[in-house]
Design a protein around this nucleic acid. Structure first.
Lengths: 147, 147
DNA sequence: GTCGTTGCAAAACGTTTGCACACCG
DNA sequence: CGGTGTGCAAACGTTTTGCAACGAC
């Protein structure tokens, strides 16, 4: 478990620089995101409510938005359903199996070649972490093949 | 505009082979998907209702599901909001700009190298069309740079 | 004290479900 | 005529909004 409140003054400074305020809720949401690795707003809310039951899910949504704008968290779309939030430094590419739903994580370096191609061919700056790649995982491929 | 009802008997055969029935709604939804290139269920419904106002959005959802199961349409998640449906033969990779929202289409061949790497390294069979890649388009990159 | 932030309730959005009726084969 | 497919209404899960009260600075 990540040390609760670690970087509290860093967050405070980051907020104050932009005329925003430090609140317990903001610290709790950030702690929850770091703790959970990657999680949906709903899961983050549940976690926050373990220590502060009154915190509303609306606040979680608004806080995640804000934390994303100031660059301390990011979110990834894993396909269907709710997006998954994680700390900004927790970067990798997600592989979602559309048969069993498993989510694997691979190093962002794997996308380097593609990113370079897209930049050269289309002038498009790829954000490698925002996408979840979809396909069929090894297990499901083998199961399918043996049928 | 795609010729309305083109491949009507092909669809009929495909359905009958599986014990399913041909209906005007199914033809209209397929025509709409082909016409629109790629569109959300909502947009497809509006298009269908131009010629058949009584068709319900529920039917559009159910029909898109069915057409996808029999392999004549596919859907792509462009990030936020509703998925985008297109004809199965209309395949390419989507690039979504997270600044201006523009969706560009690039040939699937660009993903060949990545698909190969993922197969070799992870045993993961990439479905190149199901994902939309996210990033910043050329226009937004240039605008950003000149600020 | 100011004004950014929160909680609550309600609305918005995209999608699914239950059910009676319609219509394809 | 049997059973699949449809329309309608209502429920659902997720996210956003309006607004009065709260609390950081």
């Amino acid at each position: 478990m990540v040390e609760p409140g670690s970087g509290a003054s860093a967050l405070r400074d980051e907020l104050h620089q932009r005329g925003l305020r430090m609140t317990p809720q903001r610290q709790l949401v950030l702690d929850a995101v770091r703790d959970l690795g990657h999680a949906t707003p709903e899961q983050i809310c549940t976690r926050v409510q373990r220590s502060a039951p009154a915190v509303n899910i609306t606040t979680v949504y608004r806080t995640l938005d804000l934390l994303e704008r100031i660059g301390v968290v990011r979110h990834t779309h894993l396909g269907h359903g709710a997006p998954s939030y994680s700390a900004d430094d927790h970067q990798h590419v997600h592989l979602v199996c559309h048969d069993c739903g498993t989510v694997a994580e691979v190093p962002t370096e794997l996308m380097g070649g593609l990113a370079e191609q897209l930049r050269a061919a289309e002038g498009f700056q790829l954000d490698v972490t925002h996408v979840a790649l979809s396909g069929r995982c090894r297990d499901c491929t083998e199961t399918e093949a043996s049928r």
